[in-house]
Each structure stands twice: as C-alpha cells, then as structure tokens.
C-alpha cells in the first residue's frame, strides 16, 4: 500500500508540469488560429468546438482509465455505436419509455466493457486483442440488430434536445456541453477521490506489486473496462441525440482519436501515468486544431497530418521533460 501511495505522489508532481505544457499548446493553437481568423474565437465557434469535443471527450475519458492500467480499449467507437443502436431498438421496437431506453443503451456499453475486461483478466487475452474482438463483435451486432438501417428517434422530439437543446435557454450553449462538463467532473472525482483512480494507476505502474499489496487486480480491471464502456455509452447517447438517429455503421476510427486525446493529455500507453484534466485538454486540443484547420480551408488530407504531428510532439516533449 505504502508503495502505491508514494508512487501516486511522485506522479502528481510530474503530471502538474505536463499539464502546463499541454495548456500552453492549447493556448498557442487558439492564439494562432485567432490571428489567422478572428472569427475563430467568436462565441458561436467556441460553442462549435466544445460541442465537437463532446463525443470524442467522452470516449477519451473512458479509455483513459483503461490506459492508466496499462491496457488499451480499441472498441470504444464501435461500442458507442452499438449502445446507441440498442437504445434505439429498446425505444422503437421494445416500447421502452425514453429514460429506460437511454439507461439501457448506456448499460449495454458498460456490459460490453465488462466483457472485454473478462477477456483480459480471465481469458488472458492481451487488451488489444480482447477489445479488437469486442470492436468486431459490436460492429457486426450493430448492423445485425438494426437490420443495416439507421434507427430514427423522430417520434421522440425530447431525445434530440438531450444533446442539442439549449442549456437554460442560452442560445448556442447546447446541453451536450453541460453533459460533457458533468461527466468530466464525475470522472475527475472517480480519478482523484476514489480507489478507482489510485488502483488503475497502481495496476498500470506495477501490476504485481498491486496484487501483492492486496488489490484484487482482476476485479478492478473488469470494473475499469466496464467504466470505459459506460462512458462510451454516454458518448453514444450524445451522438445519436445530435443526429436524431442511431447510425449503425458510424464510429469507425473514433477509438483512435480518443486514444490520441488521452496520450496528448499525458497518459502513457505503458500505464501508470495520466490524468483526467490532461485527457480533456487533449480532446480540446484535437477539436480546436481540427476546427481551426478547417476554418483556414486546409485540405482534409493535410489536417490529419497536422493532428499526427501535434500527437508526436506532445509525446516527444513529455519524454524530454522526463529525461531531464
């Protein structure tokens, strides 16, 4: 126990300076794009960037906990889609009332995560394989269950307002942004005030040590993968609410963007390192960058290259800082 505690302390110290670096990166990007086009910092565009962060931010928060443990979850995009499809099925085919359908969809996400976790712990699958299997399974099931058609929520106008309605009637301030803020706070509390945060980092930095100090590693890991699935489920809710439909073939590549956000935010893919504020700033960096490049009419093929460069340098600076 003492070992994991001191470890936690040391990490908080380095996390702090990493956060300063990425906040600086974010500020630099924003200033740069503002100089290029002052509209970039208009109220409308700030809201556009925040709304664009919602789905990726949600997935990134979920996958962060898994990455803290030294694992990876490449199924979050497909699980997100599957959750939204299952909500849609529950609502339109099984006649669930709206709140129950939403809850059901999110729980489906959590269930998928738990199954990945069981694959990792009880079936000894490497996390990449276990979650790749889950990605393929949920991708296939989304198509099968939906009969390869979008499921529309048009009969439930309330559903669309969950994400796109205005919070307290403030124009442009969509509910989805409030949900993202709320979920970020919840994730932060889970991370810093509960055992989930401490144990996920402890498992990630030294699984054997965690086990020896009495942590039921398997159980916590399954819980953490399930947590990642729940976040993906909430992501699915926001996405389908914005679209007014569950699109069974959507979500391709979303997991990589989520992992990139976590990594830019200071999570180490070898585990034991990272933070929730870091991840959310990472997600903001990606959406601010993509938004800014689009406003500058940079060709699509180059946009992806720029995000790649930022990803590489974010990790590079972090490595340099650690070496010093």
């Amino acid at each position: 126990m003492t070992q994991t505690k001191t470890l936690g302390k040391r990490l908080t110290g380095t996390e702090f300076s990493h956060k300063l670096i990425i906040i600086a990166v974010l500020v630099l990007l924003v200033v740069f794009f503002y100089i290029m086009n002052p509209n970039y910092l208009s109220y409308g565009n700030i809201m556009t960037i925040l709304l664009a962060t919602c789905v990726n931010g949600m997935l990134a928060l979920g996958v962060s906990f898994v990455i803290f443990t030294g694992g990876i979850d490449i199924s979050v995009g497909a699980v997100m889609t599957f959750s939204s499809v299952m909500s849609g099925v529950a609502l339109t085919r099984w006649g669930f009332p709206l709140p129950a359908a939403i809850l059901f969809g999110i729980l489906v996400g959590g269930f998928c995560g738990a199954v990945s976790g069981i694959g990792v712990t009880k079936m000894f699958l490497p996390p990449f394989i276990a979650t790749m299997a889950m990605q393929m399974i949920t991708k296939g099931l989304s198509l099968v269950v939906s009969n390869m058609r979008p499921i529309y929520f048009t009969s439930e106008p309330v559903y669309q307002r969950i994400a796109t309605g205005s919070f307290l009637g403030i124009s442009g301030f969509h509910n989805a942004i409030v949900i993202l803020i709320a979920v970020t706070i919840i994730a932060y509390i889970l991370f810093s005030k509960t055992l989930i945060g401490r144990y996920s980092l402890a498992i990630g930095s030294n699984e054997e040590a965690a086990r020896l100090s009495g942590v039921n590693v398997d159980r916590w890991k399954i819980g953490i993968y399930a947590l990642g699935g729940l976040f993906a489920g909430v992501g699915g809710l926001i996405m389908s609410s914005r679209l007014g439909s569950a699109q069974p073939q959507l979500g391709v590549g979303y997991e990589l963007e989520a992992i990139a956000a976590a990594v830019i935010g200071g999570s180490s893919l070898s585990g034991g390192e990272g933070s929730i504020p870091g991840t959310i700033i990472g997600a903001l960096i990606i959406s601010s960058l993509t938004n800014g490049l689009r406003i500058m009419s940079v060709p699509t093929e180059l946009q992806s290259a720029f995000v790649g460069i930022v990803l590489a340098f974010a990790v590079y600076f972090d490595q340099m800082r650690k070496k010093r």
Binding site: N37, N39, Y40, S42, G44, N45, T48, A52, V55, M239, R242, L243, Q247, L250, V252, G253, T290, N291, R294, I295, M296, S297, P299, T300, E301
Partner: peptide, 26 residues
C-alpha cells in the same frame, strides 16, 4: 467554389465541417 473538405461520409465529421465552412466563408 470556395472550399472543398472531406468528411468520410461520417455524419458527425460532416456536421463539424459544415459549421466551420459557414464561419470561414460567411
């Protein structure tokens, strides 16, 4: 034709592109 962007046929990406397009080219 003032701008061409590609959204992979992905609903959300295309939505973000349309929004930024209206800002970049009012």
């Amino acid at each position: 034709i003032v701008d061409i962007q590609y959204g992979e046929g992905d609903h959300l990406r295309s939505a973000e592109i349309a929004k930024t397009m209206t800002l970049a080219h009012a």
